[in-house]
Nucleic acid binder design. Structure first.
Lengths: 333, 333
DNA sequence: AACAGTTCTTGAAACAGTTTCACAACTCGC
DNA sequence: GCGAGTTGTGAAACTGTTTCAAGAACTGTT
């Protein structure tokens, strides 16, 4: 087994120096630091901190995503609830700030004493996740659907419910249906857009690129979507907003400029919480139980940790559902 | 310093046995386990795990409160943001489930490798917090105002803003002003109620016990408050709801039963997020920046950790503010 | 140049806590 | 009684961290 004594021998320094480098302690020369890091990387050293008296599960933010969204807040809530019953606690890590230079993500996780990791990621940082799994670390990608089939993952499938939502609009007689979606096309938003296209294609409704409106996933984005719609001729009579905050912003802007919902514009939102009941009119929306998603993620991870014997990767999807409330109405003749 | 060798000597067992007991490992007799735990408690032993390669800060839920509220979600968000720049990560702990039998909270925190703790607590578990601080552990009580002046704490002072809110209603000519507040009287809700009484007392408005309505701090609670108001004669013309979800529920119920806001009932809410902008009418509310509160808590804790030399406890309050939007109107003659 | 006073770096040794391994002390079932 | 398994235990080995003293490399002053 590679330990700091071996690293020290390899690098030609003392174990104290190795320890200092590994902990970013001050007072190590550039030369010594480089020698140690080189040895660490050549040997693939990983600290033996798994044998700690604490057992932690890490929630890792790798890129793009951050705790700063209602979705992530609900997710953390569910993840923590899902850990109840196990003796693990939750450690929140950010790969961008906790990871030391020339340290792999697995090394960081081991150093932090995590027994398993829930990875919150975007396509940009998927390579990192693949690496972690390749190194045999227990990990589950949560809230997105990675391409690599070797990754365990748990995500929310919003495509069928999105299709239902748009079919509902078509059933109400709407012909020009816009969609407001996130500028960053992650797997979630891609699913929703795909569901939109599914519904239109099935009814052979011709769509136009103009109707796919990209905006930021916040209130301001929703405002933008409504302004874009207001400027179109002929004006769309319905819109599907694939993000909760966008829906809020859209409702506000519609009210501000005198577009009545649902009389002048049918609006379908996306709700990953309880927002639909708080708005006026109550929002017809594609819904997702984010807390349950988090809980399921924890449970899957605990399962992966328990089974040290290799089992084949698990990919699990939770279905979104479509709820009809008061923000949609028949198209006017 | 007390270490496991000393405990072993004291208990008349080997260090292996002590380690096993401390880690809840199987294969230790009742007799040996008792002897070790007795010795641990007599000597006040605490593991030396502070010297770990990771530095963590713990957010500890002691009782009552849980992650499962919008307030806590925003708080976690802010706390994590506040740790940016330091090299600490955030560990979320629940004293109810992580604490082992006959282990003090400090011992649990040390065992988990926390360098400092943010304590989320209610009056019920305040004794635990006092103990942690008495044992010299770096801790900050967050989101409530404990009685013990020795505790560092950071909280939100909603009393002056609540007073302003009620004065605003008085200024609009309202005479019968109800308040809907949480059945559990924590320091936050007590502050808001005190602000309400302050305003009424200053104007020498007589109030009645009937106008103080206790309900649960959720949408259902808000519904209850409106129903109680609707049944009163003479009916109150204004109400202050001291919780965000209560305000949402109250608005909904008012709309359902045909009480127009603000024409028939002026409504002031409490907003610890961005909810006020999403509601119709936009909510006149006492506001609090929860994310900033969390950030300040982290910063205070890092300061407390840095100053190992005893400084006197810091108590810091963040002021709430009052925002006038569209849910309040002059009382009708 | 010479020199005293700092500040940097460093390795040896001590340390804390965990785990392995062998062994003694019990159980059973016969 | 007697093997075969189970349970509980301590000695020793092991991992990574920290302390301490000492040498190396600067610094400014004569």
């Amino acid at each position: 087994m590679v330990n700091i004594r071996a690293i020290a021998r390899e690098a030609g320094v003392s174990i104290s120096t190795v320890s200092r480098v590994l902990n970013n302690a001050p007072g190590v020369s550039e030369v010594a630091r480089d020698a140690v890091l080189t040895a660490v990387n050549r040997t693939g050293y990983v600290p033996e901190v798994g044998r700690r008296s604490t057992s932690n599960v890490a929630l890792v933010y790798t890129a793009g995503a951050s705790l700063d969204s209602p979705f992530d807040a609900a997710l953390v809530n569910g993840i923590y609830a899902g850990l109840d019953g196990s003796d693990a606690d939750l450690l929140i890590l950010d790969a961008r700030r906790s990871r030391q230079p020339s340290e792999t993500l697995t090394q960081m996780l081991m150093r932090k004493g995590a027994q398993g990791a829930l990875l919150r990621t975007t396509t940009a940082s998927q390579a990192l996740c693949e690496e972690v799994v390749a190194e045999g670390f227990a990990a589950v990608v949560v809230g997105s659907r990675p391409d690599d089939p070797k990754l365990n993952c748990i995500y929310s499938d919003s495509r069928p419910a999105s299709r239902e939502a748009v079919e509902h609009l078509l059933g109400l007689g709407h012909k020009r249906i816009a969609i407001g979606t996130h500028i960053v096309e992650d797997s979630d938003h891609a699913d929703r857009l795909a569901g939109y296209h599914d519904a239109l294609a099935a009814r052979e409704v011709t769509t136009s690129e103009e109707l796919v409106i990209r905006a930021t996933a916040d209130r301001a984005g929703g405002v933008q979507v409504v302004r874009r719609i207001a400027g179109m001729t002929p004006r769309p009579t319905a819109v599907y907003l694939t993000d909760p905050l966008m829906a809020v912003g859209a409702l506000e802007e519609a009210r501000r400029v005198g577009i009545r919902v649902p009389q002048d514009l049918s609006l379908i939102g996306f709700d990953d919480g309880e927002l639909r009941h708080s708005l006026v009119p109550h929002l017809t929306a594609v819904c997702q139980d984010t807390v349950a998603l988090g809980r399921a993620a924890s449970e899957l991870l605990l399962e992966v940790i328990a089974k040290t014997n290799r089992t084949k990767p698990k990919r699990s999807a939770r279905r979104c559902w479509f709820e009809i409330h008061d923000s949609t109405a028949p198209a006017r003749k």
